[in-house]
Amino acid sequence: MNPENQNIVLRTEDLSIGYRHKNNLKVVSADINLKLYEGELIGLVGANGIGKSTLLRTLSKVQPPLRGTIYFNDKEIKTFASSELASQLSIVLTEQIASKNLTVQELVALGRQPYTNWVGKLTEEDKEKIRKAIEVTHVTELVKKRCYELSDGQLQKVLIARAIAQDTPFIMLDEPTTHLDVYHKAYILKLLKRLAFETKKTILFSTHEIDFAIQLCDKMIVMNTEGFEFGRPKELIQCRAFSSLFPEDLILFDPKTGSYKVRN
């Protein structure tokens, strides 16, 4: 399918991100122009401290942009009430959830909060969405367990299930593969790939697994000190976006294998 025929879920125009301290502007990254389509898996990579989290926070309206605009389904993000935004965008954070005493079932069910009544009563439709989210993320055998009983990999799957239950066209994950071993890193990213394909959701995640991201993502956003590149992994390799990601004194990007090699 040609992506240009699909719906644009998120679009940014000349977006500048950063922080504002009184009259002092600290621009983290400028002139960001993105078009994210329905059903795409997008990886966001860059060195530590380059501003990946700032970008995610700006896109999820936690902090305001310095300049430029963000559109969700052609509607400016500024005009969304927080309850409206909750039906457009769900997130998976690196931070721990507050209560580890929650059961998996309860945790996933909390994803339905934007749609439930004042005491949070679940309708049949809500229950169906929860059941599907649990099924599609393969956590059915965990539903009765409490979160403190889960391994890091299992917890990550459950948090993704919660985001799926929230049933938003756009899901954002902040480093979903940290703390996981290499097998589970691949497992989670494969899961995201499958979810983007099966549920037609747009999934954006930040990661340090550049080689996995190159293999799995439809598009990638590369943030480096000079600015910012956006495109298909193959195009990005061709324009040497990954080579300039890190100082070249220690590691070198190998375009053939799509991974970094330590310099001898």
């Binding site: 959830i97 004042w118 949070g120």
Partner: peptide, 23 residues
């Protein structure tokens, strides 16, 4: 009693609660 739903949402932590549309 009015706060029941907010309290349940807060079990996830404040950032998640905000992302679920909680004021």
């Amino acid at each position: 009693l009015i706060a029941i739903k907010s309290l349940n949402t807060l079990l996830l932590g404040e950032n998640y609660a905000r992302s679920l549309g909680l004021h």
